[in-house]
Write a protein that binds this DNA or RNA. Sequence first.
DNA 1: CTGAAAGCGCTTACAG
DNA 2: CTGAAAGCGCTTACAG
Lengths: 339, 339
Amino acid sequence: MSKKTPGFRAATILDVASVANVSKSTVSLVLRGSDLIPTETSDRVRKAAAKIGYVYNRRAAELRRQSSNAIGVVISDLRNPFFAEVLVGLERRLAEAGYTVFMAHTNEDLERQQRVLTILREQGIAGIAICPALGTPISLPRSVKSWGVPLVVMVRTLGGGASYDFAGADNGLGVRQAMDHLIGKGHRRIAFLGGITGPVLQQRLDGYKETFTAHRIRFHPDLIVTSQPTREGGHAAMVRLLKARKSVKAAVCYNDLAAFGALSALGDAGLRAGVDFDLIGFDNILDTIHSNPPLSTVDIKPEQMGAEAAVLLLARIKEPGLKVQRFIQEPTLVLRQSG
Amino acid sequence: MSKKTPGFRAATILDVASVANVSKSTVSLVLRGSDLIPTETSDRVRKAAAKIGYVYNRRAAELRRQSSNAIGVVISDLRNPFFAEVLVGLERRLAEAGYTVFMAHTNEDLERQQRVLTILREQGIAGIAICPALGTPISLPRSVKSWGVPLVVMVRTLGGGASYDFAGADNGLGVRQAMDHLIGKGHRRIAFLGGITGPVLQQRLDGYKETFTAHRIRFHPDLIVTSQPTREGGHAAMVRLLKARKSVKAAVCYNDLAAFGALSALGDAGLRAGVDFDLIGFDNILDTIHSNPPLSTVDIKPEQMGAEAAVLLLARIKEPGLKVQRFIQEPTLVLRQSG
DNA sequence: CTGAAAGCGCTTACAG
DNA sequence: CTGAAAGCGCTTACAG
């Protein structure tokens, strides 16, 4: 795919060497910032390089060094701002550490995830940060590890006894905080809206159910209205809830996206969140601050979570023998107008 | 920069060759899918490769071939869903064509953009798709071209006589459509909310002003309330507008994000969009469908725009001599509840 | 159809 | 401090 314009031969360190009147080893040393070379010489080399428009060839260098300064980041759903924010935090930290990120988007498609991972592997990546697509087999960390590439899993756990570095949030606690708040406001029948499957849903749902038990409130299974964890899904879930159980006046949502959809459905029905109905989201994506009305939500600091994932991965790269690392973000409830 | 686990030597085509009892040229041919090799032989080779866990080394292959199948995508603001959607469309099309994308985020920072471009260049990328950071010099396309790497610019033009492949939207027309609609509803004093700088703002503002002229309506400069093109900015702009000119009952926003902020400010003031105030966004990001209320907006099909950018880039890669290409998305007004 | 040889652009010991 | 040599893992003519 794409040769360079024919006839054009890119300058190499050999060209630089001949212009600067040194050997190519010297050029290599200068380029890599070695202090073995006297300033005068290195200046001359640098000038020569600039003059002939020399471009460092990372591929060649990495092939020879058998190493890479690129990290692969695989994201399951970029259209969800939550993941975009995680990605931004991750990328910033990685860039600070001198790494480049190669991003890939799986769109929750397992097959695509597999392809993407294979390509990253073939590129000889230095490490992988992944938010696994729904349904990812528990064996993934082991197999990536068997390739010899450092890995950090983000956001979604892979269940069971698998051991791998992980950065996520305490989802159960977050929902319990939201529920406690709602119960404190006098609600007894509180719905849970949105989410279809996956470990994060499981954890948030557990927190939801636990709260009822803790407060000795009877739990009604039909208060749980599942749906895609999207605006659309949240909208549909709220519509269904409103139709089925008119007495319910509060809900916590699987995530902020679903909460936005629910907000919209509330609006359609002429209900105002925060006065006619108390609604709480989860994630605290940027958009929650200026939604209509501003959304109360459980803050798990998406950008910071990404940054922490980067830290874990960096540590693993530097020290492969490290014991398993785990960063679990403490959630905090942020109250705005919706509930 | 992570070496592989020491002592572990990855299998090469030489290893495969010796297991399969052929020469390494044969292995190479088989791996690349050549039809020069009889099925029986190629099966044997493939089995041998699988058996010893051989991994194709793209770096080595690309170094030798002097080519790459990776494309660099540089995005100025990933937290804006509009760009995330463009990216998704772009990536899908590129993946279909067999390319891998290396994504980089500049966060509207020119220095970071420069660094990122340099690294992509050093990686020997097959092409670059860029949404230039605000303030990007007009010389960028020329300098990328001088590197010999195919380029497509997205969303924001770089002004003047520069010639480069471009995929964007007809921003002026889009705003005129929104304005015509509002005028058709009887509005005369229509505000423009959000946006600070940049070519896209310029184009949208031009469309805004032109409409007044076309309808022979007197134009009031203070109907333009600039702000960051974010929710926060849109919120602030609406607050300012409401305070300064109580008689204004309609606005078009720089983008959907700003419109969401405006929606939120309207809500704060007890006003309902679509009944007390007509508000129209721009972009038609996914979020508009289920905002509160659902946002009327100018649809420029972000994902499709990304896909079209990919098409242009792919064409340029295949045929560097092509004349300058330009894809300008036709906007369409989509009316929902906000205005 | 297959094998031997050269070479992509670097880095890395090793002499001097 | 600098130069000559080997080699990273592939691909690509070129013989046979």
